Amino acid sequence: MVADLPGDAYFGGLTTTEITRFLVLTAVAADGTTRRAVTIASLTGDPADRLDRVLAEQINTPDKFLQFLMLLLGLGSSAEVAGPAAAGGSIALWRRGGTGVLELLLAALADRPAQLDELAGLVGQLAATERGRAALPEGFLELWQQVDQVRRELAQTGCAHERA
């Protein structure tokens, strides 16, 4: 038996999106018996934008982006968010005048700006590459630039606040 002692481990050669706190530990006994366990490690020195990169890699279509946006901004909102099944797909939500999307963005801007801070990292990651921009619904980046400008101005003037 090994005492619970802190230890350090270094794993090199990983891409940013492969970095995780979850480790699979494998122990093999002399008789060949193998046991595995998953543990959560302390992660230090990881890139500040690691989670944004992981999300950007997974959110690779306009449908997935809108589903994520509606989930992120719909949480903590009293507004009822129409899901893709109710609208014939999330792209249909966007193309029908952005039903729910503009309202969720503006409500978050007014009541929950921290949610937009989180979204800003993801949109920045997606907007940085051609592949990422293809995952954004047509016209969203232009809308986001306006919302983001107001978000940053509110943060600078100290007017942004969280409501309970």
Rank of each mutant, 00 (worst) to 15 (best):
L102D: 13
G97A: 13
T17C: 03
A87P: 02
T99H: 02
G76F: 03
S77M: 03
G32Q: 11
L75A: 08
S42C: 10
D148C: 03
D52S: 08
L73V: 13
T61Y: 04
Y10G: 06
D117K: 01
V123I: 08
A120C: 04
L102V: 15
A114F: 14
A3C: 05
V2W: 08
F11E: 10
G89C: 09
R53G: 12
A29T: 13
G12D: 14
R95E: 12
L104W: 01
L126A: 07
S77N: 04
W94N: 01
A29E: 12
E153Y: 11
W94T: 04
A86Q: 11
N60T: 12
V123G: 00
V2I: 15
G89V: 11
L43I: 14
T26A: 03
R35Y: 10
D4W: 12
F140V: 05
T44E: 07
F68K: 00
E57L: 00
A134R: 08
P113I: 09
A128E: 12
D46R: 08
P62N: 14
T16D: 02
A9M: 13
V24D: 06
P137E: 03
G45N: 10
L72D: 10
G132M: 04
R131E: 13
D148W: 00
A85Q: 13
A29H: 09
Q146S: 02
T129G: 07
L116N: 00
L104S: 05
A134K: 10
E130G: 05
V147Y: 01
L5A: 06
A135S: 08
A110I: 13
T129Y: 09
F140W: 06
L136T: 11
E118G: 02
A155E: 09
P62E: 13
A108K: 01
I19M: 07
L136W: 10
V28F: 02
A3I: 10
T34A: 06
L102Y: 13
V2C: 08
F65L: 03
D8L: 11
A127P: 01
